[in-house]
Design a protein around this nucleic acid. Sequence first.
RNA 1: GCCCCGGUCGUCUAAUGGUCAGGACACCAGGUUUUCAACCUGGCAAUCGGAGUUCGAUUCUCCGUCGGGGUACCA
Length: 475
Amino acid sequence: MRLRFAPSPTGYLHVGGARTAVFNWLIARHEGGVLVLRIEDTDRARSDDEHTQVILDGLGWLGVDWDEGPFFQSEGVERHRADAYRLLADGNAYRDFSDPEAVRVEAQERGMHPSRVAREQMQALGDEESARRAEAGEPFAIRLLVPDGETVFHDLVHGDMRFGNEDIDDLVILRSDGTPTYNLAVVSDDAEMLITHVLRGDDHLSNTPKQVLLYRALGHPEPVFAHVPLILGSDGRKLSKRHGATAVGDYAKEGILPEAMTNFLALLGWSPGDDRELMTRDELVEAFHTDRLLKSASVFDTEKLAWLNGQHLSRHPDQELVGHIRALLDHEETFRRDLLDDTAWVGELLEVIKPRARTLDELADQARPFLCDELHFDEKAVAKHWEKDPASAMERLEALIEAFEGVEWSRKALETALRSRAEVMDVGAGKLIHPLRVSLTGNMASPGIFDVLVMLGRERVASRMKGGVARIRGR
RNA sequence: GCCCCGGUCGUCUAAUGGUCAGGACACCAGGUUUUCAACCUGGCAAUCGGAGUUCGAUUCUCCGUCGGGGUACCA
């Protein structure tokens, strides 16, 4: 089994394209097949190297690796041209000398398809005259001569597909400037690369009968087709920029894990058939099969992606998470990189912050108070727990400084110390905990306060609490 | 206009010619609790419409409707 993923480098790697890539990869890996990467760069005007690199990076990030390529469609133009001329020589294609604009206008007036107008002109012209004008150096395009009858092919997703050939136009396969068009190039390349399975977006379904005709005229065996439905935006319309991020690179930047993205994408238009949702790459490869591909379009739900990401985050190796945190906190001036060397401590930290984060960005935010000496104070937290009653806040912080003095630095002892102090002061423990949390993290929300105390250690806690008191006084 | 594809909770989906139409995300309520999460329990919520076939259709057929794709000397 040989499959291919054939993006055109006219932009970033779109999630729809990424999903197609993931499907092809999953099938190839499940079946032990070969995945070929081919860049469809024949649109000279819109293609560029930068886009190609972005796509390659996107695939690399997703973990979609390929066995052959990347090849570039532009490398095959000589073959494409030769195929077009072979079709012409065999009588399966004809020269079109007409002016495209004039043909378009005439077709419009007569209510016909442009290619049928071109065909009429070709027939009126006759073979000899056609050959003579070509000889004379007159430019012409080459069109496929669509035979009468109907074109039938099988699609793994949609079943038997049937098209009346009268509805298929005599498509241009070679432009008058000698360059091949998409449909010819695809067929020529897929045949050359011995592709056996073509899995691509639904938007190519209408192209397929043309391509099938090309395969047959060229005498190549046809591959098996599978057309997967498109991905829609939250409003059920075609996914576009106004739905937010549509490029895989955007999600990488937002702190989405590649395995979560792969998992999510795989579940869009495919299902394992049981109730599994959270799946590793290996489980996906194991379970993936074309017979469970779905026919209907699906909406890209970023909420579910976020949830899935949180799940994968909790299961992700600590070491890599640390790497991400380091990168995200790198610009912080008081970032204490040395703390990351203590793997036991980092492991504990991760344990308490992981459940609170759904993305890598959130994870870094959670880690910040523990890894950076300078706190970012959340105004709302300050207002609520300090400024509403500054005198009490200060009094309580000072009481805690005293209460923690000489106490064994363990969750249990600290909790006992805090709670008994609250009792002595005749206030609820929360009244002490909230101002304390703000002084230690700058935030309204954090891991359990006793975890925070233990993770921070006696010295840093003492200094932050004193800093808190000073800060309140200074206001 | 013409050709083609599709339509199960708001979303991703499971299922079958006969089920209480199941699960997950989101949402709501409760539990836990020092906060926010996480976690546990419970709840809300769907077969696009109309015919036909059938003892019985969400499932099969037709029509409609809505959504999508194509209809280029774009890919």
